[in-house]
Nucleic acid binder design. Structure first.
Length: 580
RNA sequence: GGUCGCAUAGCUCAGCUGGAUAGAGUGUCGCCCUCCGAAGGCGAAGGUCGAAGGUUCGAAUCCUUCUGCGACCGCCA
């Protein structure tokens, strides 16, 4: 259900009729014809560019085509007024009955109003979070987690078959560092004095891991060389860290469908298999890279190594897959991982990375393109930094002093819902300011509050109506006659509701969940405006003075609540029934 | 040196995937608030959309060049 699509169909049908009648030449490309809400409400409810787009290919003047369209469109009962404007726009004013019908349909459809089949069930894999299993999640991870989760919800809402996946980086050197750090805590648990040198993690969160290790193995590893305990301590530690991370994710309301272990790629032939696939395509060779221009490292020396010919798929230089010591580079297991994703039959891949990984985008795209023979697109979403402040003052963070702000700190202070909403009020590629005080402020300039307040107000109205003996269940409301819903302030809210399905598709298409948050703010704003009008204009109040007046005015606020609820659902935020 | 991203009101940011007179919040100024929930309401002022070209009926939006800021640039993940 999308009112804009309905009217666009009407326009296209009308154009087809004009062609059949000889008013337009045959074979015109109608692909650029669209129907949109005009910026200025004075221009009507919807506008189409059909006449302007078709003028040139049809060899006719825009206004002549427009005139013909206007005459025919006016015959449709849904069109109250059609007129030519400006350079050849056709402005359409819809009949009140159309808006009234829409409001009823919204309540009838509930939170599935706005669902789209745009995705056509395509299988999409979204990889996000993917924090190293070396400690609790911090604020930096939080934004990526919220974004990926909301994007997953959004794509699912728009008709995609979504898999949410976490890539566990448990195969590299950093988990050896973790294991050594835990080993130190283990010795500490046995009463030894230990020193945390550079290259170890001093964080307190490892103390209990060391104690747990002691509880499990006793003193079996005390005084033993690394090769005796490293493998097992590594596994023990990463398991403990993943348990910690899963708790963090749960606190934020993020639920993954799948966890994929990097370690599982090593020693199983899977990296080799992926590279063999590339080799068969002639994309692996031994070669020497040019030094990077402008900033040559001091210790640079030409070296022959195993390279992936990523330039064949759009990258700027070819990329090494093996280190000088013969081990894999980080890129190699990543190739294997994405080979696995492609093999699992996904139609589209999405990677959510921190902005500092921007340098890897081209090579990953090249790899996926090569591995899938160009079949599977990879979309990489880069997440910019979060600037934490409190009362306007920056929150100091120092990794060395161990005073970094964790996801848990944030969620404990402001709650998961507020955290999620605020993190989605900026484009993913723009830095985000997060002020611990401001996000809890109960005022109009706090979008979280403003949107929740609108929902709570509707719930309050429904409670009062129910207390007055009015039937407020959705079935009754959807069946209510809305002919009295004709005030411009009321119709303005209905127009906003009509935009919802369209907005969902645009947001899904662009992969930008923040558009949902901004839309909800706009919708809440329209609603609050109508509410305030009720102060001066009693006929605009939602509750009739006489309960016999019935539910006619309650359907619209209920429809607003339905859409807010659907939108917040995509953002992963629970709507509030009251604000107290 | 190269790649990618960003640049819109004093400030923080939207801008509907090329549309008509570029919007919101905040701040400033003016008026209002015994009224379903005033954790306010109404209105005003405030812009060479970083710069210059180009594409076309039409550009904040697309292309090119330039300026400024940020991230990244064989063996770290």
């Amino acid at each position: 259900m999308n009112l804009f699509d309905d009217i666009k169909s009407l326009v296209l049908d009308t154009l087809a009729a004009m062609t059949a009648q000889g008013a337009l030449p045959t074979g015109l490309d109608l692909g650029n014809v669209n129907v949109e809400p005009p910026r200025d409400p004075a221009h009507g409810d919807m506008a189409t560019n059909a006449a302007m787009v078709l003028a040139k290919p049809a060899g006719l003047k825009p206004r002549d085509i427009a005139q013909g369209l206007v005459e025919r469109l006016s015959d449709d009962p849904r069109i109250a007024l059609a007129e030519v404007a400006g350079p050849g726009f056709i402005n359409l004013r819809l009949a009140d009955a159309v808006w009234q019908g829409l409001v009823g349909q919204v309540v009838d459809a509930g939170t599935s109003y706005g669902r789209s089949r745009m995705g056509q069930g395509r299988k999409v894999n979204i990889e996000y979070v993917s924090a190293n299993p070396t400690g609790p999640m911090h604020v930096g991870h939080t934004r990526g987690a919220v974004f990926g989760d909301a994007l997953a919800n959004l794509l699912a809402y728009a008709g995609h078959d979504v898999t949410r996946e976490y890539y566990i980086n448990d195969g590299g050197a950093q988990v050896d560092v973790l294991a050594r750090s835990v080993y130190l805590r283990y010795l500490e648990a046995h009463g030894q004095e230990v020193a945390f040198e550079d290259g170890t993690y001093p964080g307190d969160y490892l103390i209990e891991v060391g104690q747990a290790l002691k509880a499990k193995v006793g003193d079996a590893y005390v005084g033993q060389p690394e090769d005796v305990w490293l493998t097992e301590v590594r596994a023990f530690s990463t398991d403990a860290m993943m348990a910690l991370i899963r708790e963090d994710l749960a606190a934020l309301g993020v639920k993954m469908d799948s966890f994929f272990s990097e370690k599982a790629l090593y020693g199983t032939g899977r990296i080799e298999a992926a590279l063999e696939d590339l080799a068969e395509k002639g994309l692996i060779y031994q070669g020497v890279l040019e030094p990077p221009k402008g900033k040559t490292p001091d210790d640079w020396e030409p070296r022959e190594q195993t390279l992936f010919r990523s330039t064949a798929h759009g990258d700027d230089v070819d990329r090494p897959v093996k280190k000088s010591d013969g081990g894999w580079t980080y890129f190699a297991p990543d190739i294997a991982y994405h080979f696995d994703k492609v093999s699992r039959g996904f139609d589209m891949l999405v990677d959510v990375f921190g902005a500092d990984h921007g340098g890897y985008v081209k090579r990953m795209k090249a790899a996926v393109s090569a591995l899938s023979d160009g079949r599977v697109p990879l979309e990489v979403k880069l997440i910019q930094l979060v600037k934490l402040t409190q009362g306007g003052e920056p929150v100091k963070m120092s990794k060395r002093a161990g005073t970094f702000v964790t996801l848990r700190d944030v969620v404990d202070q402001v709650g998961a819902d507020v955290t999620r909403f605020v993190m989605l009020t900026r484009k993913n590629d723009a830095p985000l300011d997060f002020d611990f005080d401001k996000v809890l402020e109960q005022s109009k300039d706090n979008p979280v509050f403003y949107v929740q307040y609108a929902h709570a107000r509707v719930c309050s109205v429904l409670r009062k109506a129910a207390a007055a003996g009015i039937a407020v269940d959705d079935t009754s409301l959807a069946a209510t006659d809305l002919a009295a819903l004709d005030h411009p302030a009321e119709l303005a809210v209905a127009r906003k509701l009509a935009e919802w399905p369209r907005l969902v598709e645009i947001a899904a298409q662009t992969g930008e969940p923040h558009r949902i948050a901004f839309y909800l703010y706009d919708l809440a704003s329209e609603f609050h405006t109508l509410w305030n009008r009720g102060n001066d204009t009693p006929t605009l109040r939602f509750l009739p003075d006489d309960p016999a007046g019935g539910a006619a005015k309650i359907v619209l606020p209920r429809a607003v609540a339905v859409v807010i609820s659907a939108g917040l659902g995509i953002l992963g935020v629970k709507p509030l029934d009251e604000m107290r």
